[in-house]
Write a protein that binds this DNA or RNA. Structure first.
Length: 424
RNA sequence: GUGGGCGUAGCUCAGCUGGUUAGAGUGCCAGGUUGUGGCCCUGGAGGUCGUGGGUUCGAUCCCCAUCGCUCACCCCA
């Protein structure tokens, strides 16, 4: 039996260099959610399978074939979460956050799991962040969520966002639209791609965003959902558009935008970035006024979005929008010999405790080799203690940039560091 | 699930129509001053050529299978 020495398909290791970039992004995420008044929730990474079956929809691709599902020892069916909304809604119901007139603004950030074929920007374990606003059907809530997402990407320097907006109606008006759509499309079924033929009965709305060119041509003259919304949905959509206009967000109405989960009502949106390749959606979301009730809570309107971290990272990398993160040591301490090591080890620990980034040799390397390491690490200063310095109670400080050296009293080291360095 | 591309050193890749001990760059280690980095020079370590089979006097190279990675379809963040 040979150990497998590679991470499972569709997973990856984040190594120190990249992990610090992730930390930067995570900080930006926490920051904007705080500013917009969202509180963080951390739900379990696995849930009862039933939650996703009911929440996301039995007939969605995710539930049908992409979930990591297994039985625990008590023979309960457990599933690694494939998305975040269902868990947040579950927690919202479980902790009774839906008091009369109460609203909850929640966000999450963490790994999700879907067992699909990995490719660029798509993994089996991937990180999503997202937000959910529960308890208000006011279009201002929709606009707030969209503005938050848009401004987040803008802040990071992505300024050519393609913001797609649509309304897919509600249980009042969608069935009628669905019917009209069927009437138009059924006679043309023979010309459709096999996929769309299958979808025709089950979810005809999905035909609208088929990428097959002949399918697209078949639907050029179909009635648009935005023209058949009921009064409630229509005015909701109209108000949302006014609100977005008032905040200077330049979206575009895309009547073909439909989404993969069953729970959406009214508003749906997607934010795309051009240079992402096939997986070009940075985030997507929408309103789900029936979901809380479907999951066993009191009827509560809600809206949210989910965003992919890996994809965002790809865009930021490609456009060089990630800041240089300076983790270089302020000081490298180079001991020569046993006695110097005994001085330097506690010194190193003490200086770190006062806020300096300090590195030292732990292998007993030669001075030459230690200088090399200090250089490679990018240390600003290197402090050498050999036999001479040890006897004299001194330390030889070398400026790695200029090469200048000066011998100072060990007792005056703190003062010296304060003078020539600045903490990061 | 379907289709394309690719598996040679830690990393990025050469390896001409199959021919001796498989190479380069980079990284790593050591040396070129007795206690001093970057540039330069020298040396060294490191490879079951993804795996298994086949063809052949002989396979990293050709054929088959298999595994892995990757891109795309589908779907999605």
């Amino acid at each position: 039996m040979i150990m497998k020495t590679h991470a499972p398909k569709g997973t990856y290791d984040l190594l120190p260099e990249n992990a610090s970039r992730w930390r930067y992004l995570e900080n930006q995420i926490h920051k904007i959610f705080r500013e917009y008044g969202f509180g963080e929730v951390r739900t379990p990474i696995f849930e009862h399978t039933e939650l996703f079956q009911r929440g996301i929809g039995e007939t969605t691709d995710i539930v049908e074939k992409e979930m990591f599902t297994f039985s625990d020892r008590g023979d309960r069916s457990i599933t690694l979460r494939p998305e975040g909304t269902a868990s947040v809604v579950r927690a919202f119901i479980e902790h009774n956050l839906a008091g009369p007139g109460a609203m909850a603004k929640l966000y999450y950030l963490g790994p999700m799991f879907r067992c699909e074929a990995p490719q660029a920007g798509r993994f089996r374990q991937f990180v999503q962040f997202g937000a959910e606003t529960l308890g208000s059907n006011d279009p201002r809530v929709d606009a707030e969520i969209i503005a938050l997402a848009v401004n987040f990407y803008r802040r990071l320097g992505i300024d050519d966002l393609d913001i797609n907006l649509n309304s897919i109606g509600c249980p009042q008006c969608r069935p009628a639209y669905r019917q009209r759509l069927l009437e138009h499309l059924k006679p043309r079924a023979a010309q459709m791609c096999p996929n769309c033929q299958r979808r025709l009965e089950r979810n005809p709305l999905r035909l609208l965003d088929c990428k097959n060119t002949t399918c697209q041509q078949l639907t050029v003259d179909i009635p648009l959902i935005t023209e058949t919304l009921c009064d409630d949905c229509g005015s909701h959509f109209e108000k949302l558009r006014q609100l977005l206009d008032s905040t200077g967000i330049n979206y575009r109405i895309n009547p073909r935008l439909v989404r993969g989960f069953d729970y959406y009502t009214k508003t749906v949106f997607e934010i795309l970035a051009g240079d992402l390749g096939a997986q070009n959606a940075l985030c997507g979301g929408g309103r789900y006024d029936g979901l809380v009730e479907m999951c066993g809570g009191k009827p509560t309107p809600g809206i949210g979005f989910a965003a992919g971290m890996e994809r965002l990272m790809m865009v930021l990398e490609a456009r060089q929008l990630l800041p240089e993160i300076d983790d270089r040591p302020h000081l490298y301490l180079a001991p020569l010999g046993e006695e110097a090591q005994q001085i330097i080890f506690p010194l190193c620990i003490r200086l770190r405790e006062s806020g300096w980034i300090v590195e030292t040799d732990l292998q007993g390397k030669s001075l030459k080799a230690q200088m090399k390491v200090a250089d490679k690490l990018g240390a600003r200063l290197t402090g050498v203690i050999g036999e001479d310095e040890y006897r004299a109670g001194k330390i030889l400080m070398r400026n790695m940039e200029t090469g200048e050296q000066e011998l100072i009293d060990l007792a005056a080291l703190d003062e010296y560091l304060e003078k020539v360095l600045r903490r990061r």
